[in-house]
Simulated assay, not measured.
Amino acid sequence: MEMNVKSKLSAILMLTLLLNAMPVNAASLGIWPINPRIDVNESATAIWIKNNDRRPVMLQIRVMDWHQNNGQDETLEQQSVIASPPMVRVNPGEQQMIRIVHRHGNIPENTTERSHRIFVDEVPDSRLEGSEDASLKLQMRYSLPLFSGVGNKGRNIPKFLKSNTPQLTYRITGDEEKYLEVDNKTGFHARLSQVKAIRPSGETLMLSDGLLGYVLPGQQMRWELSDQQARFIHGTDAQIQFTQEQTEIYIAKVAP
């Protein structure tokens, strides 16, 4: 039976991988690519894991469905997309390929992307139990997105989002605490990085100079604003601008 595993991804111990073109090193591991996809008419993709530490690591790799509810990321166990192998030992300085496989064959083309999260968890080494090292050992979780089911390699998702900005809208919600709520009515994910608010006068305020987060296809996501940010946006027709794959995309304020 499938079981809901609800968690606020920002609240669990994990490293979200942000860069686009190179392996990401956090703690002892490098993992790449950090934006994998399974394209239409393909049944698998691959990620690579390199152990940069001086000790071997045992890793568990899982793929879960990813959706958003009430402004929070949630994951759901599933068995259609799996990691092979699901458990692996990587020795110091070595690297391991993990295949991410759609068990039912080639991915059919859908009108909406499927969204998943790949979790790579470091498994405790039982040989360290009871030792001084065990009390100092911090088990890490690594997480990266996986999308599938819309378009083939070369499809330019940022270009599509840019040409469909009326389907990307925002509003300010909340009473004492203010939130930026973004609604994505397109069939593609929006990856919000280098986010800024721009007033009609041209005055600009940076909201996030790194990765703010994702808004999945057909879903809503929200982020808390500081008092300064809320005041800057409130009562104006400011646009929200973000960057995805070096493309600047605007989000218009939804009509009240």
Rank of each mutant, 00 (worst) to 15 (best):
N4S: 13
N4V: 12
L15G: 10
T16G: 14
L18N: 00
A26S: 03
A27L: 15
S28G: 15
W32E: 12
P33D: 10
I34A: 14
R37S: 09
R37G: 01
I38R: 07
I38C: 11
D39N: 13
V40P: 00
E42H: 05
S43N: 10
A46H: 08
A46R: 14
W48S: 13
I49G: 02
N51W: 07
D53I: 01
R54T: 15
Q68Y: 04
G71S: 02
D73P: 03
T75D: 02
L76Y: 10
E77I: 08
P86S: 05
V88L: 11
V90I: 15
V90Y: 04
M97I: 03
I98E: 02
I100V: 08
I100C: 03
P108I: 09
P108W: 03
E109T: 11
H116N: 14
I118C: 00
I118A: 01
F119C: 04
V123I: 14
V123C: 07
S126K: 04
S126E: 11
E129F: 07
S131R: 14
S131F: 12
K137W: 13
R141H: 08
Y142F: 13
Y142I: 05
P145N: 07
G151Y: 04
G151V: 07
N156M: 11
I157T: 13
P158G: 12
F160L: 15
K162C: 10
N164F: 04
T165L: 00
T165V: 05
P166M: 08
Q167D: 12
L168V: 14
T173D: 02
T173Q: 03
E176Q: 08
Y179K: 12
T186P: 02
G187S: 00
F188N: 02
H189Q: 05
A190C: 01
R191H: 01
V195L: 12
I198V: 15
P200F: 10
P200V: 04
E203Y: 01
T204H: 07
D209M: 07
D209G: 06
D209N: 09
D209E: 03
P217W: 10
Q219C: 04
W223N: 08
E224W: 01
L225I: 00
Q229V: 09
H234V: 10
H234P: 08
H234R: 15
Q241L: 13
Q241I: 07
Q246V: 15
E248T: 11
Y250I: 08
A252W: 09
K253V: 05
V254G: 04
